[in-house]
């Protein structure tokens, strides 16, 4: 008895085991709330698990879910639309954010106030932003159609949230409206940290404003842009709330993105096994985007003479 307790206390006190012992509670929690659910969901993607039929959890069907979704045109459409959505939203947010950052950087008075105002859209819940734009773009009572008709631009009720491409544009607009300031604030941070002397050297070297921007400023702030792109690519790839509120992925799947499809499959159709299979495909997409932008960050920082 005494020998055992002695051994135990000496194990506690030994310097090597101490750190591990101290982080053990955290490890247990993480295992419980992250790793186990992750493994469980991965397992269910190989079963025909339906929430309404608990027994189906124990039926192993191999890659059947994956084969099913890969042969489903609707899935590929949602996949492609998600990638397109990512590309459109991130590029436009970058351009707009860059413009805003460059302009705010030039302002001397009231810059702080403007910086705060610029962040406003980010302070709202995406659900509410979704509702806001749903009402703006509504074809009957929407303020946009009302305005267009009053101004005499059109006498038709334009179906902003019904037409395939108009709805895509409306959703992109809402997403961009909400999150452009992430780009703006990160690029502004980049502009603030930029040394002034290379800019002056370029002026003396014969550059006009555009050439200075293109050859000096832009390369300097690209690492900041790539950081924003990494964050936003994860954000946009899991876009769900705004789309669900504005169109619900419809009508007839015309605005379906990966995550609206996954939610429908998992919760509305109770087909959790297949939804999990789609979710893993979507996560791989996100990992690929993150990897791509990380490589870009490292390359851009190396180019700026940093050590990555």
């Amino acid at each position: 008895m005494t020998t055992i307790s002695l051994k135990f206390s000496s194990a506690i006190q030994s310097k090597k085991s101490m750190p591990y012992l101290l982080i053990l509670p955290a490890i247990i929690v993480i295992l419980g709330v992250v790793l186990v659910p992750l493994l469980f969901s991965f397992y269910t993607s190989f079963t025909p698990f339906k929430l309404t039929k608990p027994d189906s959890l124990f039926v192993f069907i191999g890659f059947k879910n994956y084969i099913r979704i890969f042969s489903d045109m609707a899935f590929w459409e949602a996949f492609g639309r998600t990638v397109l959505f990512l590309a459109v939203v991130i590029n436009l947010e970058f351009l707009l954010g860059l413009g805003i950052a460059l302009m705010i950087n030039k302002i001397t008075h009231g810059q702080r106030v403007l910086r705060t105002i610029m962040m406003f859209p980010m302070m709202f819940s995406p659900i509410l932003v979704g509702f806001q734009f749903k009402f703006i773009f509504n074809d009957n009572i929407g303020i946009l159609n009302n305005a267009l008709q009053s101004l005499g631009v059109t006498d038709q009720a334009i179906a902003w949230l019904v037409d395939r491409w108009l709805a895509f544009g409306a959703i992109s607009f809402a997403e961009i409206w909400m999150s452009t300031s992430i780009f703006a604030i990160l690029l502004l941070a980049g502009l603030f940290s930029m040394p002034q002397e290379p800019l002056e050297a370029a002026q003396v070297d014969g550059c006009n404003s555009w050439q200075i921007f293109k050859h000096i400023t832009l390369p300097f702030i690209m690492p900041f842009a790539f950081i924003a792109m990494t964050i936003r690519s994860l954000d946009v790839a899991r876009a769900y709330d705004i789309v669900d509120v504005m169109t619900g992925g419809g009508p007839a799947g015309r605005t379906e993105l990966l995550w609206t499809m996954i939610a429908r499959t998992g919760f509305d159709n109770a087909n959790m096994g297949r939804a999990n299979a789609m979710a893993y495909v979507s996560i791989i997409l996100s990992i690929l985007f993150t990897y791509y932008f990380f490589r870009k960050i490292i390359a851009a920082r190396k180019a700026m003479g940093g050590d990555a």
Binding site: P195, E197, P198, E200, A201, A202, Q203, V204, D205, G206, C207, N208, H215, I216, P219, F220, A303, M304, G305
Partner: peptide
């Protein structure tokens, strides 16, 4: 005249090289 039109060269204390 803008600096670029003055046909001058300037050498700065912090070198001001283009890092990229």
């Amino acid at each position: 005249l803008a600096p670029r039109d003055r046909n001058i060269s300037m050498i700065f204390q912090n070198y001001a090289l283009y890092p990229h």
